[in-house]
Write a protein that binds this DNA or RNA. Sequence first.
DNA 1: TTGTATGCGTTATCAA
DNA 2: TTGATAACGCATACAA
Lengths: 333, 333
Amino acid sequence: MIRKTTIQDISRVAGTSPSTVSRVLTGSAVVSPEKRDAVQDAIRKLNYRPSHIARSLKTRVTYSVGLLLNDITNPFYSAIARGVEDEAHRHGYSLILCNTSEDADREQLYLEVLQDKHVDGIILGPTESNLSYLRDLAQRIPVIQVDRTVDDIASDAVVVDNFAGTYEATRHLVACGHHQIGVVRWRRSISTLAEREAGVRQALADLDIPYEPAFTAEAAGLSSQDSMIAVQRLLRVHPRPTALIALNNQLGLGVLAACRQLGVRIPDDLALIVFDDLDVFSFFQPPITAIEQPAYQIGERAMQLLLARLVAEKDTPVERVMLPTRLIVRQSV
Amino acid sequence: MIRKTTIQDISRVAGTSPSTVSRVLTGSAVVSPEKRDAVQDAIRKLNYRPSHIARSLKTRVTYSVGLLLNDITNPFYSAIARGVEDEAHRHGYSLILCNTSEDADREQLYLEVLQDKHVDGIILGPTESNLSYLRDLAQRIPVIQVDRTVDDIASDAVVVDNFAGTYEATRHLVACGHHQIGVVRWRRSISTLAEREAGVRQALADLDIPYEPAFTAEAAGLSSQDSMIAVQRLLRVHPRPTALIALNNQLGLGVLAACRQLGVRIPDDLALIVFDDLDVFSFFQPPITAIEQPAYQIGERAMQLLLARLVAEKDTPVERVMLPTRLIVRQSV
DNA sequence: TTGTATGCGTTATCAA
DNA sequence: TTGATAACGCATACAA
């Protein structure tokens, strides 16, 4: 490859010193109009572009941020990513995308690489496992948690009111006549899922409806297969639940698949509410009632918090943003 | 922030020179076992991690690649991204994610930044507009086109056999008794869409079925609204098409929305095939017949091509990979 | 306002 | 096999 043109080259043709070139580049000091013009001409003529690498080495800022998400393929996460990216782009930041796949080792590896690459900050939906690592990472570099949070990490965070989401959904089910309400859940160690389950229980308690442990199905994983098995088990109990709340979109799809396979009709045989609304739910048969999360805004807001953190005083207190959910009533209840 | 520990620090505690430390780090030369151990001990003790920035400045390689896609929010693109990312991760590369939003200016801006950041290569689904810019970008740095290609750019590419996809779909429609087949398209300047349309026409021609221009609807944009308008127009002609092929998933969703609004029943009033299968199509009513693209593999393969290109001889000929599509027959026809 | 000199943390060249 | 030394491209402290 041809040698890149550098600040030296510019200074040479502009008849000035490298530092002056740097000054017009960064605007860090006043430069006389003549020199400035000369430099700018030279820049144009040589088609010069400053090296971010060199600049970063010197200034220690990279204008890039790491984004660690479970799986960009999940519409919820891709919407978050889009929100982050748009906001980052508006402010001249680039995004390094990492899929953790709910794998703690992979997460930690990424976290290390991101530091090696000296990102200015990290936005992540944490797995539950790298607690102590995360904790001291957050001391050294701005970390924003999104979607989920993990205990005791002093970091900004953007989450959703999971509890209120399922609380409202549960009341809706009850209002529709359901008293035997089941939950399809996954790992309770994940903050979001725990909060959602708590919302259901509280609503039930407030309504004086006994909580029936047998109505809770725990999927072994997030594959359709896993949910299917869990749901099958659930539907074998007698009496069986008349309504189900699936705690995330994958679980919801699993329930749907299971019902189809078992010939369970929704909503006639079983009502269903899914946490996290997919925009295609309205095309389903029946259209699925769901709890909508403002995914894009989560991402956008997270990036805003990060930007704020980057210019904040040393010990500005941590900020936790909680966004509301919304129950989208369709016809699966 | 505390000063980062450097190679100097290591050399000091290991009782050796910085160059020797560098040598054990990179394995670029043989180092005596004693020195090697001393260095490794020091590294562990000081918790040292090399600065990628400094390294990149020197070596001119960054182990990062840019990925420019229309919109990560579209399941087709997010699957590509996932494929790229997984493969990149396996080889120690990170991904800089950019959403172009079909906006040429934004694309060019990203392209410039990526160069400024000195990425090792770029994978992109190009907009049609930065032709000349792209052309000489591809001379300077490895570029892999995915999904779409743009004329005359000497770059590797991974695409799908769009033509065959719609060709087969069209024959399927005809086999099901449809002779009045319409197409819902968008910009014909996009290679994929043009090829897909050509597939339909060729199939029709081969079957001696006249092509009816009035059966083609051009959406003004990709919003549901846009498709809706286009479809409404289409359904007003007499005689009207009995079957439609939507040239991408967004257009397909638009058709569906339009039909719902207009009370057009699928497949009774109108058959539909969508190019690009969404995994939720099986939950729709009716389940949608679609042309599946191996999105994940597109991404994975693209990253593989890039890796190969990075170690290839100067003028290794360009490689164009074409992956097959598959017609998934469900019940919308 | 401008220029010189130095350093950011590495790797690479060269001599020993 | 090892160590000085220079260089990567830039920003900045300091001197002028």
